[in-house]
Amino acid sequence: MRNIFTFGHRAAQRNWTVADLRANKGKQQLTEVTAMNGEQAARAAAAGIDTIITRVQRMKEVRDAAPNTFVTAALMLVDHPTESDVLEGAMRAMDQGADALYTTRSLDTIKMLADLDLPVMGHVGLVPPYSTWIGGLRAYGATADEALKLADRFRAMEKAGAFAVEVELVPQQVLEEINKQTSLVTFSIGSGSGGDVTFLFSEDICGETENPPRHAYAYGDVRRLQEQVEHERIAALTAFQAAVRDGSFPYKDVSVSMKPHELEAFRDKLGKSVRLGTERKGY
Rank of each mutant, 00 (worst) to 15 (best):
N179F: 03
T34F: 07
V222I: 12
E176T: 11
H231Y: 13
M1G: 12
A239D: 09
A156P: 07
A65R: 13
R105F: 12
A19C: 05
V170N: 01
Y251V: 01
V33A: 05
D79E: 15
H123L: 01
G161C: 05
A45Q: 14
R138D: 03
V244G: 02
R245P: 00
L77E: 14
R22A: 08
P171D: 03
H215E: 09
M157H: 12
R105K: 08
I4F: 13
P250V: 00
W133A: 00
G192L: 10
T6W: 10
R138V: 01
D50A: 04
L270A: 04
E230M: 07
R55Y: 07
E208I: 05
G207W: 04
Q96R: 07
Y219H: 12
V197T: 03
D117A: 15
Y283I: 14
G38F: 14
M121I: 10
A216F: 04
Q96E: 11
G195K: 03
M94S: 06
G135Y: 15
T31W: 09
D152C: 15
D99C: 08
Q226H: 14
D95R: 02
A218N: 07
D221W: 02
V167T: 02
N15D: 13
Q13N: 11
R214F: 04
D145V: 08
G282H: 09
T6E: 06
L137E: 12
T54S: 13
A100V: 01
A147N: 05
L75R: 05
E176C: 06
P67K: 02
G89V: 09
L150R: 05
F154W: 13
L263K: 15
M91V: 12
A45M: 12
L225K: 12
V170W: 15
H261T: 05
V78R: 10
F266K: 06
A235R: 05
E203M: 01
G122C: 14
Y251C: 00
E88N: 15
M91S: 03
M76D: 14
Y130V: 00
V222F: 11
F187C: 11
P250R: 15
L184D: 15
T104V: 15
E61W: 14
P171W: 04
M258R: 13
M1F: 12
V127E: 02
T238E: 14
H80L: 07
L184W: 06
A236N: 07
A236Y: 11
K269L: 08
N3W: 09
E264V: 04
S131T: 02
E203H: 05
